[in-house]
Amino acid sequence: MKVKILGSGCSNCAKLEKVVRQAIDDLGIVADVEKVQDVAGIISYGVMSTPALVIDEQVKLVGKVPNRVRMVEILKEALPQ
């Protein structure tokens, strides 16, 4: 699984990264987590508000930080069946 956190490095971007990493640990899955901070990279996903979450090149969240339980659900939904 490839996870990207889109954002300029704001406090909510850091919170999203923390929640994502905790949820990955909770699930015991292997995921490559990458931060995308350049504006062109963020806009290439059609995202106009950050933070945003991209899983396997699919935008899953924009402009908010979910709690840990919701993040686990989002990651589970993105796992291959």
Rank of each mutant, 00 (worst) to 15 (best):
V47D: 12
E73H: 08
K18R: 14
I29F: 02
V30E: 15
R21C: 12
M71P: 10
L75R: 07
L75Q: 04
G9M: 09
K35E: 01
G63W: 06
G28H: 05
A14G: 04
I5N: 01
I43E: 00
V72C: 05
I29D: 11
V33T: 13
M48D: 04
K2F: 06
I42R: 14
Q58N: 11
G63P: 14
K15N: 02
E34I: 14
E73I: 01
G9S: 10
D26R: 04
A31H: 12
V30W: 06
V19A: 07
L16V: 03
V33E: 06
P66V: 08
S11N: 10
P51F: 05
V47L: 03
V39K: 11
L61Q: 01
I42L: 06
L79E: 05
N12W: 00
Q22G: 03
T50C: 05
S44N: 13
I24Y: 04
D25S: 14
K76T: 15
G28Y: 10
D32Q: 15
A52K: 06
E34Y: 08
V47R: 14
I43W: 10
P66A: 08
V39P: 01
G28R: 03
D32L: 13
V33P: 08
V69Y: 04
C10T: 15
Q37P: 00
V65G: 07
L16F: 03
E73V: 01
L75M: 09
V20E: 08
V19G: 03
S8N: 11
G7H: 09
S8K: 10
L53W: 00
K15S: 06
K4Y: 05
G63A: 10
E77L: 01
V65L: 09
M1G: 14
V19H: 04
I74G: 09
A14K: 15
P80H: 13
V59H: 08
A52I: 02
R70Y: 07
Q81M: 01
M71R: 14
D38R: 13
V3K: 01
V3N: 01
S8V: 08
L75F: 02
K4T: 08
D26P: 03
G28Q: 09
E73F: 05
K64L: 10
E73P: 04
A40E: 15
I74W: 07
V72N: 04
V20G: 03
K60S: 12
A31W: 08
Q81T: 04
P51G: 14
A14D: 07
Q37V: 12
G7V: 06
V36N: 05
A31D: 05
V20A: 04
V72K: 11
